[in-house]
Structure formats: C-alpha cells, structure tokens
C-alpha cells in the first residue's frame, strides 16, 4: 500500500474536508524515535481509509513546556496561533499521539476560544477496535510479556487508564501490571518541561527509578503511549544494558507491527 499524508491546506485548496486532524506534535515531527510512532499511526489511519489530514508546517508547538515551566507569554503566543489556524479551517476533531498535546488542547485551549473534540490515539484505537473497524492480529506478540507504563498526562491528568490497556489486550499478549500503575504510576521524569533540562541535584534520575519498577515484572516489552515517556524509558532501559531484551514500544507501533503494516 502506498501511504499518504494529506496536508490540510492542500486538501482545502482541492475543496475537500477531512473528518479528523492528526496533530503530530513536535516530538512526533522531529524526534527520531517518536517519528516512528507517527509513521505507525499514519499507516493505521491509511489502512482504515480514515479521512484525515495533518497541519504540516502550519502546526506549532502547543506551548505545553512553556506553560508548565512558567512562561505564560510563550504559551499564549503559540496557543493563540494554533487556535487561529484550527478555527480558520473550522477543525472539529483532533487526534494526537502525544498526551501533552492532548491534555492542553482538550483542557486548556477552550478558555482561549479553541473548542474541539480531542482524542488521544489510545482512545481512538480502542474505539476502532470496539467498533470492529480495526482488527488486530495477535501473532507476533502472542505470549509476550507486555507491561504498560501510564503517562501522567493521560492517566492522572485525564483519567485514561483502560484505553491503552484494551489495545494491548487485543494483541493476544500477556499484559502484566506492576504495583505502581494507573493512578499510582510513577512519572517517567519528563513532564513539566523536565524533558528539556538536566535534573535538579538528587540521588537518582527519575527515569531510572521508573525503569527499575517496570523491570520488576520481567517484561519483553514496555508499552507506552507518550513520546516523552518513550524517550525516558528507552534511555532507562539502555542505562540498565537491557536494550536487547526489553523494547520500549508505543501502542500504535504494536498495532502496526501486529498487522504487518
């Protein structure tokens, strides 16, 4: 199959309207590891003939790291720019693979005049599976031990715990929970703009602490649903020299790999 990435401005020029916007996010656009998740999710959208589009060069950072760091000016500039773009095109529904983009567009853009239906890809994939639109082959993951690391901005911030798990369960794999999961999950260490600076002085890095907790159940795969968790835990696994035995994989990649997209 020849995969396509429709860009919103081009679609509109052709007089077409997409059903949903795929908000790629900065990590999904520029981070090498997260790009592979973007690719996997795009393949799923293509395979299911979803009428989607991306903003392409018109997409800007949502402003999440700036706002969380305390720089409201930078946040407001980016947010208002994005809302002007989205409202200009009359966008109604947005999908994203990044919990930080998801949280801020869903919960914080409305106060600035940006009202959209926003879905994180875990919820979207769950819906597609439940509706029978997306069939997942369990093959490659049958019997594999998969543990899921809750992203704070999906979990505690928005109380989405079951959607990513139901996607993993569709894989016919062995979903193993660690003690500190769901509402009790430990952060990967990236949130609140920590991703972009060195840790404050301490005994240990947070991602190492979290990786150790996840490794307690001897997983073959650590499933994630956030590009920043992905980076942090990939580093954590490398730090333990376990990168050959334990893979850190996004749920979109799991689905794409299972279905050999």
């Amino acid at each position: 199959m020849q995969y396509k990435v429709p860009v919103l401005s081009e679609l509109v020029a052709e007089g077409k309207t997409p059903d949903v916007i795929f908000w790629v996010g900065c990590a999904g656009s520029f981070d090498q590891r997260a790009q592979r998740v973007t690719v996997a999710f795009t393949k799923i959208l293509n395979q299911l003939n979803i009428n989607f589009a991306v903003l392409g060069t018109e997409e800007a950072c949502t402003g999440d790291p700036a706002r969380r760091a305390g720089n409201e000016f930078v946040f407001q500039m980016l947010a208002q720019q994005n809302i002007a773009t989205l409202n200009g095109y009359g966008v109604k529904k947005i999908l994203t693979t990044c919990p930080h983009c998801f949280n801020i567009i869903k919960n914080e853009y409305p106060a600035l005049g940006g009202q959209y239906e926003v879905l994180h890809h875990s919820t979207y994939l769950q819906q597609l599976i439940n509706e029978g639109q997306l069939k997942v082959e369990g093959g490659p993951f049958k019997g594999k031990r998969i543990t899921y690391h809750d992203s704070c901005y999906l979990g505690r911030a928005n109380e989405i715990y079951e959607a990513p798990r139901s996607v993993i369960e569709a894989l016919d794999a062995d979903l193993v929970e660690i003690d500190r999961s769901k509402a009790n999950g430990l952060c990967c260490g990236a949130g609140g703009a920590q991703m972009f600076k060195e840790d404050e002085p301490g005994d240990k890095r947070i991602n190492i602490q979290r990786t150790e907790q996840l490794m307690e159940v001897y997983p073959d795969i650590i499933a994630v649903a956030c590009p920043f968790c992905n980076t942090m835990l990939t580093d954590g696994v490398k730090n333990e020299n376990k990168q050959d035995e334990i893979k850190v994989v996004d749920i979109a990649e799991l689905v794409a790999q299972a279905n050999k997209y």
Partner: peptide, 30 residues
C-alpha cells in the same frame, strides 16, 4: 536550557532547534 527552549518555541514553534519547514520530514520514512 529552558531559556533556549523558550527561544526555540518563539522562533521555530518547537522546543528544539528545527526549522518549521522540516515538520513533514518524517513522511520520508513512510
């Protein structure tokens, strides 16, 4: 580091120093 991030976000609309025109480079992998 945060000051750099803020500057990048203002100038490049991303926390990293990538050009906004490269936002679709990932499609080459598709």
């Amino acid at each position: 580091e945060w000051n750099n991030v803020f500057a990048n976000m203002e100038n490049n609309q991303a926390p990293w120093q990538f050009s906004p025109s490269d936002r679709l480079n990932w499609t080459e992998e598709l």
